[in-house]
Simulated assay, not measured.
Amino acid sequence: MPLGTLDRTPPPFFKQGPSALSKLMFFSALALFLMVADLRFRITQPIRAAVATALYPVQWLALQPVRAVQHGSGYFTALSQARAGEESARQKLATQSLRASQVEQLAQENSRLRKLLGLREQPAITGVAAQVLYDAPDPYTRKVIIDKGMVQGIALGSPVLDESGVLGQVTRVHPLASEVTLVIDRELAIPVLNIRSGERSVAFGEPSAYGGGLELRFMGSNSDVQQGDLLTTSGVDGVYPPGLPVARVDRIERRAESAFARIYCTPQAQVNAALHVMVVTPVSDAAMQVPPAAPTAAPAGKGVRK
């Protein structure tokens, strides 16, 4: 008998284990269950923290050649560019020094007025300096990874600033690193205050607008918003300290068929080029550390009637 005519498949007696279709259905159901459980109960958060801690040395080693190239390219900067940068830095330093003296005077006046009226003192803003390591490997979100985590006292939900304004918010904390969601991410919203008009609103991330921006939603078409208005944090959410620059109004679209206007804003922070950041303690956590204001004394001549 020719060898090609022999049946090489094993008889059914020697087949063991479930079929391929049953395996596919089982593992699909298991994956779906794990995704739902992770979304509702965060069961994989300790595993993610352990994996992030174990991979941190590998990530650090992988970033060293990139940093070496970046530092090496700095040596080839022209002398004229270095002098121009020094002059610009001196001018900014002088301007910031003048503003700092004015802010200190206003802070003293604010403290005196609060003591006079018996109001509670504003909590002091504290923070931790950090450095951006790399962008998060997710094409559908706008996030970065910084080199500070729970070991350095980073709390979940802490605001993140750069030298120009609000950069984002900490949305995931690992022992040695943290994940920061940028203000242009569609999942982030910040209560803002229009400095010119004093009107409060909410700025939502809009990553598709000019490569990344923000949008003021649910604003009436007759709202008092103009191009160039500066938006700062309002401080009503208990997370962001008030008065931090967030964005500036760039474009306004008012349509007759819609009751709301489309207001696009440009972030003040360098969302695409931030390197050194400051992680600020949330206002609600800082307020818990402030002692309550002392009660005011009763006016003279008005004793308590027994």
Rank of each mutant, 00 (worst) to 15 (best):
D138T: 09
F14K: 09
P18H: 03
G74C: 04
R67F: 12
P282M: 07
L93Q: 14
A269D: 06
G238S: 04
A29E: 06
R83F: 09
V66H: 13
L133P: 01
L182G: 04
L167C: 08
D250G: 07
S101I: 14
S73T: 04
R40N: 11
A273T: 13
A300T: 09
R67Q: 13
D147H: 14
D224W: 02
R200K: 14
I47G: 13
L3V: 08
P18L: 03
R42T: 07
S97N: 13
R248P: 00
S97C: 07
Q64A: 15
Y264V: 14
Q226N: 08
G220F: 08
A247H: 05
R142S: 11
Y75A: 11
R217Y: 03
V225I: 15
K23P: 00
V236M: 01
L79M: 01
S223K: 04
A129F: 08
G168N: 07
R217F: 00
N272H: 15
D38N: 15
Y56D: 08
F76W: 13
F27T: 14
N110T: 10
F13Q: 13
V36I: 14
V304C: 02
L119E: 13
Q16M: 11
F27W: 15
G238T: 00
T281D: 06
G72R: 11
G220M: 03
S223A: 14
L98M: 13
E215Y: 03
E163G: 04
P295K: 12
P139Y: 05
L161W: 11
T44R: 05
E253K: 14
N194M: 02
A136D: 10
D185Y: 09
M278A: 05
S88E: 12
F218A: 05
A189I: 03
L21N: 08
G165Q: 05
T5A: 13
